[in-house]
Every structure is written in C-alpha cells, then in structure tokens.
Design a binder for these strands. Sequence first.
RNA 1: GGGCGAGUGGUGGAAUGGCAGACACGCUGGCUUCAGGUGCCAGUGCGCGCAAGCGUGUGGGGGUUCAAAUCCCCCCUCGCCCACCA
Length: 826
Amino acid sequence: MTREYDFKSIETRWKDHWISTRAYSAPDFPDPDKKAYTLTMYPYPSGDLHMGHVEIFSIHDTIARFARMGGHQVLNPIGWDAFGLPAENAAIQRGIDPKKWTYDNIAMHRASMEQLGCSFDWDRVVITCDPDYYKWNQWFFLRFYERGLAYRKAAPANWCPKDKTVLANEQVVDGRCERCGTLVEKRNLTQWFFKITDYADRLLDDMALNTGWNDRLRMLQRNWIGRSHGAEVEFELEGAKYPVTIFTTRPDTLWGATFFVIAPEHPLVDELVRGTGREQELAEFRREVDSLTEIDRTSTERAKKGMFLGRSAINPVNGENMPVWIADYVLMDYGTGAIMAVPAHDQRDFEFARSHDLEIRPVIRPPQGTEPDGASMTEAYVGPGTLVNSGPFDGTSTESSVEEVTRWLESEGRGRAAKNFRIRDWLISRQRYWGTPIPMIYCEDHGEVPVPDADLPVVLPEDIDFTPSDEASPLANAHEWVTVPCPVCGKPARRDTDTMDTFVDSSWYYHRYLDPHNDEMPFDPEKSARWMPMDQYTGGIEHAVLHLIYARFVQKVLVDMGMAKDPEPFPNLLNHGIVTMGGKRMSKSRGNIVEPLEAFDLYGADALRLYMLFSGPPEAPFDWPAEGVAAIGNVTAPWLQRVWRLCEENRDVVHVGELNQGPAEHALRKHIHRTVKIVTDDYRSFSFNTAIARLMELVNQAYRYKKVGGNHPEVMSELVVTVLKLLAPMAPYLTEEQWHRLGHESSIHETPWPDFDPSLAALDEVTLVVQINGKVRDTMQVPPGLTEEELVTRALVSEKVQKYLDGKDPSKTIVRPPGLVSFVVG
RNA sequence: GGGCGAGUGGUGGAAUGGCAGACACGCUGGCUUCAGGUGCCAGUGCGCGCAAGCGUGUGGGGGUUCAAAUCCCCCCUCGCCCACCA
C-alpha cells in the first residue's frame, strides 16, 4: 500500500525526535583522527531567518551531515551574534526592550533552524549578549591592554552622523557607513584601538597556511592589509627641530626629488609656518580642505590644491634645497604624512608640479629612446630604465636600483629599508548602548585604570535612556552605573561609557563553542586544542575584510598568549554567494522577499534545502526566479515525491535467494555503483547541484527498469538503500523516514556512507570518437582498455570514416585512450 | 586609474584541451482525467530538410593546436575589490 508523502508530519516528527534525543551533541574530547569541526558564521538575530540564511544553512548542514556519515565525530555548533545596532534601533523606534527583542528573534531563528533540519549541537549555544559570554570579551580586553595591544588615543575617527557612533575603517565603504549608507564624517575623538598593525606581516604571510581558501578571498585580504616595500628617508627641514621621515617605494628616484609635501593636518605644519607671515593663508587653506567630504578629498578627478610654506627641505642625497608645500593629495593617515615629490616619475607629483610651476627633473632613462626632458614631458615616466643625474648611481638599472640605493642610504645613515601597510589599527570603541561595556575606569588621580578581573563582568545597565546623541554615549545616562570607586584609591571615578565593536565578540566565539559553560576562563585551551583548527568554515564573502581579518588577528594573539596552537583558525573556508531576487537584496520595502516559512508550509524543508542546493554551485550568487517559493513546487518537490514513490513501491522487496542477474540488472547495478563513486566526489568538492543531477539520473533509470518489467529484489533493494544514503545529507527528513520504513531502528544519519565496487563502477564500454581534420565524423561503442593500435583499427572500420578519408592515408594520427582517435589528411 | 572574476539555449546550470548544452525548469505534442491540477511518455540550441542528414553554434575579433566554452593577445559588457597608498 503506497502512502502519500506527508512531509509536514514527517518533518515535525523527526525534528522533535532529533532534538529530544540530542542526536547531534558532540563530545568534549573526540578521537583526534575522526574529529570534524564544521561551523557556519553565526547569524545576527534581526527578525526571522531569511533565504540567505537558508542557503548557507542548507549548504553547511549538508557538509556536516556528509562528514558524520563519512565516519567523523562531528562538532556542529550554532549561536547568535546578539549585540549590535538593530536591537537598539528597534528599542528606540518602537520602545521595545533590546534584550527582549533580541531573545524573541533568537527563538524564532532557532525554531526555523530546527524546522530546516539543521544538525546543530543545541547543548553548546553561544549568545554574545549574555553576560556569561561578554564577560570574556572584557577579560580579553584586559589581557590585550596588559600586552600593549589595547590602547587609547585621540585621532580623527570615522563618525556616522545617523548611527551616532564611530566606525572602524573596515566599516566604511566608499566613504559611507557600511550599515546605513550615510556619508561618514571625520571627528577628533579619544578612542580605544586594538593594535592589529603589529600583526600585519603575520596576517599576510600566514595566509599561505589557508590552503582551503579561494583566491578571491586571499586577494581581498592582501589588498586590505596592503603591504608595500621601500625605504624611509630622513629630510632636514628649515624651521623644524627634528628631521622629518618620509616613506617611499622608489628611493632610487631620490635625485629627482624637487619639492617636499606635507599633509595639511600634519602637526609639524604650525611649527613650520610660525614666523613666515603665512599663518592667515594656512588657516584659509585648511578651512577649504576641511569643507570637502572624504569622497571629494580623495577623488583623483579633482585638481590638486596646495600651498607653499615658505620653507625649504634639504635633499639628503645631494644637499639641494627643495621648497616645502602642503597639499591635499598627501594624506595624514598613510605612510608618515609627508612625501618627497618626484614629478618626473610620479603622476600625482607631476600634475602638482605642472599646476604650481615646480621643477620636473628626470632621473630615469627609458630602455629605448632618449632621456625625457622635464620641460616637454606630458606625463610622468613610471617604467623601468637606467638611472641618470643620480650621482654615484648613474648607469644603474631600475631592476636593482631600489635595493642598491637603500643599502647606500643605510650606510650613510640617512635612511633604511622599510615596509608600509595600508591597514590601520582596529578602532573598537562604539558610542552605542547594546554592546560589551569597555572595562576601564578613569580616575582623576590615577588616570585610566583597568577593572580588576574579580569585578568582571561589567554588566550592561538596563532601563536607561539609550537615545544616542552627538555629545555622549547612551551609557553616560546611567549615572549610578558610571560612577564607581577607583580600583586603586577608592575615590569616585567614572567608567568608560563606550561599548565594544561587535566584531570583538565574533573574533573568538569559535573557541567558546568548544567549552561553552566554562565560568573560570573564556575556554580551556586543552578542550579547544582537541577540536581546532576548524575543519570547515562556511560564510559570506562580505566578511572578507571584517570578521575574517579580526578573527585571524585575535587567533594570533591567542597563540602568543599560549591559549591556542594554530596560527590560522580557519584553513578551509567556503564562501557562498548572496541570495537576491530580481538582482536586488531581498527587503520588505522592495517587496521581493521569499519567505522560508511559506516554503516549509507548502513544500517542506527537504524540498527547500534541495532547491537551494540544486540551483547552482555554492559559491555562485543565487537569484530567486520571479515565481518565488512556487519554483520549489516545480523543481525539487515533485522529484522528492518521485523518490518517495520509488521507495514505497519497493519497500517490500527482500533478499531472496541467489543473485541471478540478467543484463538489465547488471546495467542497473553498474549505474548504482558509478553513482556512488561520482556523487561521493561531488560531495567532497561541494558540487551538490551535480550530485543531485546524478541522483535524478539514477532514479530515472530505476523507473525505466521497472517499466520494462524489471523487479529484481536485491538490485532494487540496493538501489533504494543507496539513493537514500546518498541523498540523506541533503534531504535528511525523507531519507530518515524511509530508512525507518525499511525496518531500521537507528538513524540513517548514523550509518556509514556507501562504498562502491570499482569493477562495477567502471564503464564496460566507452564511446570511441573519431575525428578527421578536427571534426567529429563518427562515434562507436568499444570495450574499455583497448590499445592505441586497436583503437585505430576500430576507427578505420567505420564506413563514415572511410568516406571522409577518401582513400588517402592519414598524414598524422593522434590517439587519446580510452576513446579518441583523430586523423589528419592532406 | 590599478587589480580580480564572469559572459554558454527561453531560464537555472553542466562540461577546465577531446561528442557543447548533463540534470532540471519552461515550452510543444501525446496518454491518464468529466475538467483543472498531479502523474506518465515523447520532442525541444539555431538554419535547411518529411526524414536520414548537412551546416552552424559558448559576448566580438584574431592566434596557438590534429582538436578550444576551456590556453594566449586585443576589444565590448557586467560584477566585485582597491584607489591622490607616496
């Protein structure tokens, strides 16, 4: 009796069963040879799950379940990135308690994850807004402070006027706030930083250890860290007490330096201008620069503005005087904020020299042609060549000149080899409420005093007015909380009222899963070492320069603290593409949301999972078709029905007697074993769409076999069991249900992955393709394993081939076993 | 301005030097059905042809090769990253 595939009751039943039996709980101490730590980036709980989550969870859960069936002990935890602005904004706009809002959303998320069939270990949930978690953010902050890796400084910071908080450089995209798109302003503020720049070299060099990263991600990080090699050179400046250091990647062009430029904000500028009578002019120039937005200021389209300071600098290589300028194209926060200008060989300097009538002196002669002439050049020459007008280095090739000049500078005591980085220290202070309080106290007598470990956590006060303002952080409104005795002297002091960037939370959470209930330490390094490094991480490419760079940095600090052993935490990372509809990110205001709940209701979790997996490779972006959820009803839902019926119709087949196979059975068995081989490879390379395609072919073949009267019990039994197992990681519910209907007591997800018999998986004929002059002229079926001579003989038998050869002998014959012969004739 | 990636039927995609379009969706026709839906079967890149077949075809142009979606050069389009980065 065939029963309908009632996915609703099946999915609900198994979901509850897996939860109540804690089916996916992992041990603390796994067998080192069998452990597999699979993780997906924890979500931010703003509302319920959306289709982007569904895609990543479908991919990720398939990977975790495949590892489990492959005989691994799998740790597959989940948690929530629960601090952050959306909770606070919901609170401000709708008067909801941010904590309640967050936990309500987490509950919705969790229900949807369970419904989707995610094999998470629910005993290890980590929620970052829980004091048991953020206590350890504070503990790490104090350890960083002790190691000189957390420091406070006044600096121009990126300020988002809408969110009313500062942002890290990584959170500013094209001069705008990454979250809300508002133009970012610069503000001078005293803020806490983590010294990620100390780790810049290691962050770059250790990337080689991340063998399971794609090139795109590597490149994004490399660009962001932005290491360049060159030299630091010291210049004496008239009117300055100390020499000024510049960084250049082209020390070999030093003899072509004809002026010196400093950033307008450089602290030295006031000192230099004092007494030159140009103070008024300077103030005006700065006002003009200040009035520009960051976007305008850094636009290469704009003409470069500058002002002569009335001072000169001495070129250390030849003692020449060069005029000192300030110009808006020199940036305070890159390099040293000062440059030597070589207009003949740098396009920016060239443009500036032309518009301000400064000398252009070529010092590189191109390999061909003549020495450029400064007066007639139309653009800077940046190519290779031979040094000229360069004192002792005349005649040196640019291939070696950078190195040689640097050595010379070092021996003369005028400079040294240097590296420069684009990456800035990580600004972690936020002037917002819903985050980890920074555990520092400011005392009139003792300055900044760390909160003693014994007083952790510094708990976020509740019931305060958290409306943000331009003047103070919301926590400043918690007057009773702010005022605290100084840990040193006991006199009244004030707490830091800023909270930490939420990326601090996510930079070490993957260790907390390994010891989630520890109240003595953030995690026991022993326990962590049993599961780390992570075996497979999955997440979005949008975190390429945010989470992934911060977490790698913190991991390296953990190594230095002796709390971790692996320099790289995530050697294998799978990036999934973004999910859109009509090419646009789904959002309520656009009305282009495809709802997971509707999909669960109409087609079931298995059909939804399978649909996401079948739509293309995991890395590719995924654009929902216009029909929305209904697409599932056309694609994977009917196919699952087909699988269901196949199982039901063959449920009663049992092993009976000898395996007397006819040719049809033999062909079908071969198909089964070939499918196991190919689908297993597809799983390993995350090619789930083709794995599903191969399973569809096998199921089609089974229906065809039955249609012609095939009914061999053993072969059909093997087929049904194999299809169920190969499908189990992707469609966990249907396969579990059918597994039990076949009479098994235990879960299909705990059974071993199927093996294949290589002799059955091998093809027993191959298609021989015969080409003449590069065109396919005939194909024929031949046994595998023929020698090259035999293949040629077979090819020549063909009438079509003979027709195209037209009696001529091939002038060339190429044979590529197992199935290609190519003739070339006259 | 620099760098990286992509461009294949009506659609999602497959093939990474060796039969282009696997597997699906859609569409067309047929069977089942009172009908709709479901289910099942067949066809489906384009051109000519009743068909067998022939030609043609992976953004455009050129090249390498017996053989190119795949490798190389130029161009176009789209996406992403970096960007007055010294």
